[in-house]
């Protein structure tokens, strides 16, 4: 039935709403919905061309029109939910997240949005716009290194990241490393 496919996208969006990861882009369904919309558009044109003053046919054409708009709305909802999620991730992790599940146009979006972020960040260098959104409770924290990553230069000094080593460091210095999952905070 017309409209069933778009429903699947909405169900998918709802299911993934609270997921941490962004699920695989539904290329096939999106394409099929686009195809269906074009068919509906052709049917609408056809009905309008032969309708004259036949009210039944005009109503039929109207329903075809509504179906197309519904499809558009469902597609927009599906894509928007994904883009908002991507934006959130970009703010939080910048460019260090997995993009293999994204469609080509979404990958372009992520790349270009990161450039926008760099620009905004530059305007507010003093307050580090992409910094942590958790209120600072302690100046210094204990972190454990998760990977060998060599020497890392921070604002207040250099430290050598070798796996499983622990450091007592300034929280603001390591925020970026935590985002990149190079180190983890050690809970007291």
């Amino acid at each position: 039935m017309y409209g069933d496919l778009a429903d699947k996208l909405i169900a998918e969006a709802r299911r993934s709403e609270n997921l941490e990861q962004i699920p695989l882009y539904q290329t096939d369904i999106v394409r099929a919905v686009c195809r269906e919309t074009r068919q509906l558009s052709a049917l609408e044109d056809q009905a309008l061309a032969t309708a004259g003053s036949d009210r039944t046919k005009l109503a039929t054409a109207g329903v075809y029109g509504l179906c197309q708009r519904r499809n558009k709305r469902c597609l927009l909802a599906y894509h928007r939910q994904r883009l908002l999620k991507l934006q959130k991730k970009a703010w939080h992790e910048q460019d260090s997240f997995e993009t293999s599940n994204l469609s080509p146009s979404e990958q372009v979006f992520v790349r270009e949005f990161n450039e926008v972020l760099v620009n905004v960040k530059d305007m507010f260098e003093d307050i580090d716009l992409t910094g942590s959104m958790d209120p600072p409770r302690e100046m210094y924290v204990e972190v454990r290194c998760l990977q060998d990553a060599g020497e890392i230069q921070t604002e207040y000094g250099v430290f050598d990241l070798s796996k499983n080593s622990q450091f007592y460091v300034r929280q603001s210095d390591v925020h970026r490393l935590v985002q990149q999952k190079l180190v983890e905070l050690v809970k007291k």
């Binding site: 999106v30 394409r31 919905v33 686009c34 195809r35 919309t37 074009r38 558009s41 197309q68 708009r69 558009k72 597609l75 927009l76 894509h79 928007r80 883009l83 469609s103 080509p104 146009s105 979404e106 372009v108 979006f109 270009e112 949005f113 926008v116």
Partner: peptide
């Protein structure tokens, strides 16, 4: 960026008036 992503993703396959 958002609009261009929608366009490339699916709107370009839509009838122009939509």
């Amino acid at each position: 960026l958002e609009a261009s992503s929608y366009y490339k993703g699916f709107l370009n396959a839509f009838p122009t008036e939509l």
